[in-house]
Design a protein around this nucleic acid. Structure first.
Lengths: 192, 192
DNA sequence: TAAAAGCATTGATTTGGATCAATGTTCTTT
DNA sequence: AAAGAACATTGATCCAAATCAATGCTTTTA
C-alpha cells in the first residue's frame, strides 16, 4: 500500500522513516472500478489523486457532447482538476477510471497542512507541478508546430505504455482528432 | 528598479525589508532593445527573466522556417526555456524582445541558492509555476475542444492587453493559425 | 453462449483552414 | 520626407481532416 507513492516521493526528496509515517497519516486509499467517476464536472475537486495502480482520464465534454481528453493518469501520475482544487470553483473536467484502479488520495486540508509544515512536501509538490508543466508544454509545442503524423509518432515514442492500454479513439481524443482520422494516419504510417 | 518584481513576490509571500534586500543581492537587471535576443535556440538557457517592462516572445522555428509562438511575456510574467534551464540541454525556443524591455534576471545559481536557503522563495516559485501550468492547461483545453472563432474570442477576453500591443500575425502564430485565417476570422466576427 | 455494446476500419462527401498571389496600408529607418 | 520593410486584407485554389454512413471485429454483460 502506498508503495509507488513513497517510491516517487523518495526519488525526489529523501525521507526518513518517521517522515514517511507522518505523511501516511494524511493519506487515504481509494479503489475505483472501471468506469467509475473520481470527479464529475460541476462538483468541486476536493482531492488530488496519485495513481498507484490502474489508469484514469480527465476530460471535458463540449456542447455536442464530444469528449476531449486533457490528461491520462497511469501509475505514478497525479490526477485532479487542479484549478477547481485550488480555487474551490466547480470542476470543468470529468475524471473516471479506464481500468480498476487504486488511488492515493490527498485531501485539500491534508495538502495544505503538509505544505505548511513539511518543506520536503512543498519541494515534492513543486517538482511535480514543474514536471507536469514541462510535459504539457512539449505537447502544446507539438500541436502548434508539427503535422498530425509527427505528433502521433511522438506520442507513441513518449508514452508507449499508454498507447498499449488505452483504446485508440481515446488517443484520438487526446490529440484533438476524430477516431477515423487517427485510424487513417496509422494506416499511412504502417504502409511505409 | 525591481519594483514590479517585488510587488509580485510580496503579493504571494509577504517579505520583510531584510528579506527583500537579501534577494536583491541575487538579482541583476538587463535591458533589451526591440528585436534583441534573450535566448537563441541551441544555446543553454542560463537564467529566468521576469519582465519588469516591455514585451517578449518565446517561439520555435520549424523546418520550413515558420515561427510558432509558445508564449508571450509582458509585464509581470516570467519567461525562459524552462526545460533547458533545468536540465542544461540546449534550448529549443528562441526568446526575443517585441519592444524595448527591462528584465529582472535570476541566474541558475541564484535560483538554486534561493530555493535552498529561503522557503519563501520556494513557495513563490511553486505558486508561479502552478499559475503557468493552469494558464497553459486552459489554452490546451481550448485548442482541443473549441472552434477557432471561440478560441480567438477567449484570447481577446483573457489577454486584451496582449492583443493591443502585439502584431496580429503573432497572435495567429500563438494560436497555430496563418495570418490570413486570423484576418478572416476577425472579419467574420466583426460582421455580426 | 448469445446478444449487445464498444471499437476500428474503410468509403464518399463536405468543409475549414492552408497556400499562393496580389494590393493597399502602416510602421521604421535613414 | 522618402524609401523600404513589415503588416493586414482579400481573392482563388487546394488539401487535410471532419462528417456521415456502413461493415466487421472484439469485448462485455446478461
Amino acid at each position: 500500500m502506498y508503495k509507488l507513492f513513497f517510491q516517487h516521493l523518495n526519488s525526489k526528496v529523501q525521507l526518513t522513516e518517521a517522515e514517511e509515517a507522518h505523511i501516511k497519516t494524511y493519506l487515504t486509499l481509494k479503489k475505483l472500478r472501471k468506469k467509475q467517476f473520481l470527479l464529475q464536472e460541476g462538483d468541486v475537486c476536493k482531492a488530488i489523486a496519485f495513481v498507484e495502480k490502474g489508469a484514469l482520464r480527465a476530460y471535458s465534454v463540449d456542447e455536442n457532447s464530444n469528449e476531449h481528453i486533457i490528461q491520462f493518469g497511469l501509475e505514478g501520475w497525479t490526477i485532479s482538476d487542479l484549478y477547481s482544487f485550488l480555487t474551490g470553483e466547480p470542476a470543468t473536467y470529468n475524471i473516471d477510471a479506464l481500468e480498476d484502479s487504486e488511488l492515493v488520495i490527498i485531501s485539500k486540508s491534508a495538502h495544505e497542512e503538509l505544505l505548511q509544515t513539511m518543506p520536503k512536501y512543498e519541494t515534492f509538490t513543486r517538482l511535480n507541478i514543474t514536471g507536469a508543466y514541462l510535459a504539457m508544454q512539449r505537447r502544446l509545442t507539438s500541436i502548434i508546430s508539427a503535422s498530425v503524423e509527427e505528433r502521433y509518432q511522438e506520442f507513441i515514442a513518449l508514452y508507449p505504455h499508454i498507447a498499449q492500454r488505452v483504446p485508440q479513439h481515446m488517443i484520438a481524443s487526446y490529440m484533438g482528432l476524430t477516431p477515423e482520422t487517427l485510424s487513417r494516419i496509422r494506416k499511412r504510417i504502417s504502409s511505409k
